[in-house]
C-alpha cells in the first residue's frame, strides 16, 4: 500500500515519535511512503537548530536520518514554517532574516503538496501532538 504520513505535533511530542515508528514499520512491512508532510507545530522538526541533551532522543535527527536513508519525499508546509521560524535560504533572503535553518533533506512547499500526495496514496495517516 501507498502511505502519506502527515505530522502536526511539536518535535518532542509523543505523536511525532509515533509517526516516525509508524513510517519505519510501514517500510519494513513492504509498503511505500509517497510523502511525509510536516504541518502546524511539526514544521519545527525540520529545523537544523534543534539541540538535544546527549542522553535524549534527537527527534529532528531521527527524522532526518529516516528521510535520507530511505530517500523519502519530505515536505514542510511553507506557510506554517514561516510562521514558526523555519526558513530555507530563499525565504531567509526574501524576508531578510539573519539565517536559514531548514535541515537538509526537507523541502519547503505549499499545502498543495499534501493534496497531491493524498491523490497518490491509499492511506493518509495523520499524527498530532499527543
Amino acid at each position: 500500500m501507498k502511505f502519506t504520513i502527515a505530522v502536526f505535533g511539536a518535535p518532542h511530542a509523543p505523536g511525532t515519535r509515533r509517526a516516525l515508528r509508524f513510517a519505519q514499520a510501514a517500510l519494513a512491512g513492504g509498503h511505500e511512503i509517497v510523502r511525509v508532510f510536516l504541518y502546524r507545530e511539526a514544521v519545527q522538526t525540520a529545523s537544523a537548530n534543534l539541540v538535544s541533551p546527549q542522553d535524549e532522543t534527537d527527534m529532528g535527527r531521527a527524522w532526518q536520518r529516516f528521510v535520507a536513508d530511505n530517500q523519502i519525499d519530505a515536505v514542510v508546509c511553507i506557510a506554517a514554517a514561516l510562521r514558526r521560524g523555519v526558513l530555507d535560504t530563499g525565504e531567509a533572503q526574501r524576508y531578510q532574516r539573519p539565517a536559514a535553518n531548514l535541515a537538509a533533506g526537507w523541502a519547503l512547499s505549499g499545502l498543495g503538496q499534501l493534496h497531491e500526495a493524498a491523490q497518490q496514496c491509499d492511506r493518509l495517516v495523520c499524527f498530532g501532538d499527543q
Binding site: 504541518y39 502546524r40 506557510a79 506554517a80 505549499g110 499545502l111 498543495g112 499534501l114 493534496h115 497531491e116
Partner: peptide, 13 residues
Amino acid sequence: REALDIALAGGAF
C-alpha cells in the same frame, strides 16, 4: 485557521 487552509488549498485544486 490551519484546518481551514487545508480545505481551501484542496478546493483550489
